[in-house]
Design a protein around this nucleic acid. Structure first.
Length: 543
RNA sequence: GCGCCCGUGGCUCAGCUGGAUAGAGCGCCGGACUACGAAUCCGUAGGUCGCAAGUUCGAAUCUUGCCGGGCGCGCCA
């Protein structure tokens, strides 16, 4: 509806000879907070007056006189304050908007295909231990973003990058080996900086139980074997957790394949050709400082070993090779120092900096019994995503992770989440769906035509207005990469409905009015379902 | 020291790229089930939007500087 009004105002301005530049209007159509008003406001005259030197009030008058209202969508127009234009939309407009929504059905809010091939890479936790709560937040945000972007019209692919090469993997194998030695009676202290989690011990028991002769073979060979076993095992666990969490990755990309396929060398050769690399002190350096980084970075160490960054460059190079126009990475905020060099690398590949979008998700600080819980994989004392899911469920966890923007730290109190499951806002939203289903069922699921202009209550106008802004919300959430706006939107929708329900009877005495209200209820039900679906939260018909 | 993020009612946080009287959930207090689900609703109380300047007709929102909190600054991964 904002778009409709904006178009009319733009047309009026054009008729008056104020041609706008570009497609974007210089003014904003706003909704006053008070839901009873049911009107829209714009500052068009105020903004435009700056450029043409006219008094805002005069300009506002001219605009109003030139608004095309042949369809009768606008009930009232007025000048308010120092150049604001207030529009009250007519019953006819609300009826049409609601009818359009119902006609669209499941396709409501689906954007036109944008022709942009996007990848969202997220979670990508090292397969050295189970996912913890912090990964859960990234998973919820990433998965919701994928769903929202797809809905908005992006061609989007979710991917998981498996760091299955490098030192950490070796450390993992050695950790298991150390536990196996313990099981065999060794009194050696557990090595420093190795993984101590319970899962390591479990893996050691499994391996040792299956093959007691393990320790008699050369250590090198055993470590490799155990690394492989541990990594496969842990990755399976990660996949299982993500499945429980309803998080989907279409592609599981192995870092190892980059090295084996020579792609790291190819990517570096490409940058070399463009003059971004040089040798110094026996190491190969990337001129990232010339592209906005603090300093140049090493890609191949003087020992000949490639850095993690080199592999990461190759990985991104590979993403663009695969034809993605837009690459979005979701990282933990502790990687923010990595942003400038990654952007520099993308530029060195000959891409625009904006072809890479980096989302940093701040920490989740866990609280149990009022005490902060440390979350270090190495120390082995962490709370896993699985534990949280078992306690509060996927719906509550996902909704909770998505009520906040990614750039603020999130405090997740396990005791509170456990004790107050029923008070979680997710139920407030889900309850709307269940309540409406119940009403529709009692009324025999009416689907016939209705005179939607009978919906004349202010609460109804507020509901329709909110419902019809859903497509705009999806576009904005996708463009800004902020899926969490959905939770706020749904909470408001739920509140509007519950208020409405408390004041008016949906199955009204008057059959015509009842039919119209049933149609409105169906629309609310639809949007609740679609909205929750985008968050990856279930919307049960009964609870 | 440098860089990034955050600072909004008792608590946890929204605030849609600068708009009209700052919003929700939880918590407190008082009400509402002989009509569609009380996992709900109605009502009351509670805020100098960290502080101070600046830009603007207009700032929680943009700029700068302080204060407070978190994180990061390797030929680590």
């Amino acid at each position: 509806m904002k778009a409709m009004l904006a178009a009319k105002i733009n047309q009026a301005l054009a008729d008056l000879g104020y041609a706008e530049s570009g497609g974007k209007p210089a003014f904003a159509v706003e909704e006053p907070r008070d839901p009873d008003h049911g009107h829209l406001a714009t500052n068009a005259a105020l903004v435009l007056s700056k450029f043409c030197g006219k008094k805002p009030a005069d300009l506002a008058g001219q605009i109003l006189a030139n608004i095309d209202n042949r369809e009768g969508y606008i009930e009232k127009m007025a000048i308010a304050g120092p150049g604001f234009l207030n529009f009250t939309l007519s019953q006819k407009w609300w009826a049409k908007a609601l009818a359009d929504l119902l006609a669209a059905g499941d396709d409501f809010g689906r954007g036109q295909p944008k022709g942009i091939k996007a990848m969202v890479e997220y979670v990508s936790a090292n397969p050295t231990g189970p996912l913890h709560v912090g990964h859960g937040r990234g998973a919820a945000i990433g998965d919701a973003l994928v769903r929202v972007m797809a809905r908005a019209g992006f061609d989007v692919t979710p991917e998981y990058y498996i760091n299955d090469a490098g030192r950490q993997m070796r450390l993992l194998g050695e950790s298991v080996l150390a536990r196996v030695r313990e099981l065999a009676g060794s009194a050696e202290p557990f090595p420093e900086n190795h993984y101590r989690g319970q899962y390591i011990l479990d893996l050691a028991r499994e391996a040792y139980g299956r093959d007691p002769g393990l320790l008699r073979r050369p250590a090198e060979e055993t470590v490799e074997e155990l690394t492989d076993l541990a990594q496969r095992n842990i990755l399976e666990g990660i996949k299982a957790d993500l499945k429980t969490f309803r998080v989907r990755h279409d592609i599981w990309f192995s870092e190892k394949t980059l090295h084996q396929g020579g792609q790291v060398d190819q990517a570096l050769a490409d940058m070399e050709k463009k003059g971004y690399l040089y040798w110094q002190d026996g190491a190969l350096w990337f001129r990232s400082e010339s592209l906005g980084d603090d300093k140049d970075r090493v890609l191949i160490k003087s020992g000949g070993e490639k850095t993690y960054f080199a592999a990461d460059i190759a990985y991104h190079w590979n993403k663009y090779q695969r034809g993605f126009d837009l690459v979005i990475d979701i990282w933990g905020a502790d990687h923010h120092g990595y942003v400038p060099r990654m952007k520099a690398a993308v530029e060195a590949m000959g891409r625009r900096r904006d072809d890479l979008d980096l989302l940093l998700v701040q920490l989740v600080s866990l609280v149990r019994d009022g005490q902060p819980v440390a979350m270090s994989t190495r120390a082995g004392e962490f709370v896993t995503l699985k534990e949280v899911l078992d306690e509060v469920g996927a719906d509550a966890a996902r909704f909770m992770f998505l009520t906040r923007g990614p750039d603020t730290t999130l405090e997740f109190d396990l005791e509170l989440a456990k004790a107050k499951t029923k008070d979680n806002p997710v139920y407030y939203v889900q309850y709307v769906g269940a309540r409406i289903e119940s009403i529709l069922k009692a009324a025999g699921h009416p689907t016939g035509p209705a005179d939607l202009e009978l919906l004349s209550q202010p609460e109804e106008a507020a509901l329709v207005k909110h419902l019809t802004s859903f497509p705009e919300l999806i576009q904005s959430a996708a463009a800004r990469r902020e899926p969490h706006h959905l939770t706020a939107y749904l909470t408001v929708l739920a509140r509007l409905f519950h208020h409405y329900y408390g004041r008016h009877r949906i199955n009204a005495e008057d059959p015509a009015l009842a039919a119209a209200r049933m149609a409105l209820a169906r629309a609310i039900r639809l949007v609740v379902r679609l909205g929750l679906e985008l968050l990856g939260v279930e919307s049960p018909d009964s609870m």
